[in-house]
């Protein structure tokens, strides 16, 4: 254990407003939510002498609220809460499923959705569902509140477009206009549990009465520096029937939007082949 507590400065705001104020005064501070990523780095001695903005007292931010348009998941809602929330499971099952495969139960009890987003791992398991649900991220800073499309929050691996002293307050999930014809969430980990993903996929498909694609939304994690929607394949299939030829073409087009690499967890070739097979299998039904 290489973290040195007495080199640390801890700020503990009691309210969101105080959190924003404190962060404004200490933009160098490191926001801390469930600690499941930050504390690993801290234990390794990589974060000594930092100021930490501990968000855990902000109970308001751990709630899940229902509005007319959708659900608003507080940034500090834990994966366990999301996993078990009946409203999430009914309206956004892919997100609930993702929450249930992040780490193991003890990690799900601590890790938060906002923390996950701020950490911006290319392999974040909740990201493909958020991408296909077209989530909106609510942020707050001394300059005021802001809403961003989920995909626009990421700039690269471990890099977000959050501005200095800007905190994620909540993630809004707009209700889907109608039930998807088909949906998929699939995590390909390195082992059966408690594993980081080699690739992670979420998909929603709407077919019209004549079997034509009304809309396809398909997102992949760990396949590019950030989570990606398969815009090219999605656009190609819109209005098309799912025939062997169109499915094959869509599968081919997957390569337009992702560029997986070899790393310690898998190979680019494997990631590409498996995500193609997942997309193909999903489209073939």
């Amino acid at each position: 254990m290489r973290g040195a507590p007495e080199t640390m400065r801890v700020l503990r705001p009691r309210s969101p407003a105080e959190a924003v104020r404190l962060y404004g005064r200490h933009p160098e501070a490191l926001p801390l939510a469930g600690g499941t990523d930050v504390m690993v780095s801290w234990n390794a001695g990589l974060l000594n002498r930092r100021t930490v903005l501990d968000l855990s007292p902000l109970r308001e931010w751990s709630r899940i609220r229902r509005t007319r348009a959708g659900l608003v998941v507080g940034a500090l809602a834990t994966h366990a809460r999301i996993r078990d929330d009946a409203r999430v499971r009914a309206a956004f099952p892919l997100l609930a499923e993702a929450a249930s495969v992040i780490g193991a139960a003890a990690i799900q009890n601590r890790g938060t959705l906002g923390g996950n987003i701020a950490n911006a791992s290319p392999a974040g398991d909740s990201f493909p569902p958020l991408a296909v649900y077209e989530a909106v991220v609510h942020t707050i800073s001394p300059d005021g509140e802001r809403r961003s499309r989920f995909l626009n929050v990421f700039e690269g691996p471990k890099a977000t477009a959050l501005r200095p002293a800007e905190l994620i307050a909540a993630v809004e999930l707009p209700f889907l206009p109608k039930r998807p014809t088909r949906q998929i969430f699939r995590k390909i980990g390195t082992r059966a549990a408690q594993a980081l993903s080699k690739t992670v996929a979420a998909g929603l498909l709407w077919l019209d009465g004549k079997g034509r694609v009304e809309e396809l939304r398909f997102a992949l994690g760990a396949m590019a520096p950030t989570v990606r929607r398969l815009r090219t394949a999605e656009a190609f299939l819109a209005g098309q029937r799912l025939t062997p030829a169109t499915v094959d073409r869509a599968v081919e087009l997957l390569g337009e939007d992702v560029a997986p690499i070899d790393d310690v967890r898998s190979t680019g070739a494997y990631r590409l082949a498996v995500s193609r097979a997942l997309l193909g299998g999903f489209l073939r039904g």
Binding site: M1, G35, V40, S56, N109, R110
Partner: peptide
């Protein structure tokens, strides 16, 4: 009542 990994929890939390 919930399992957590105590190596990842600063006591202030």
């Amino acid at each position: 009542g919930q399992p957590v990994m105590s190596c990842l929890v600063p006591v202030c939390q």
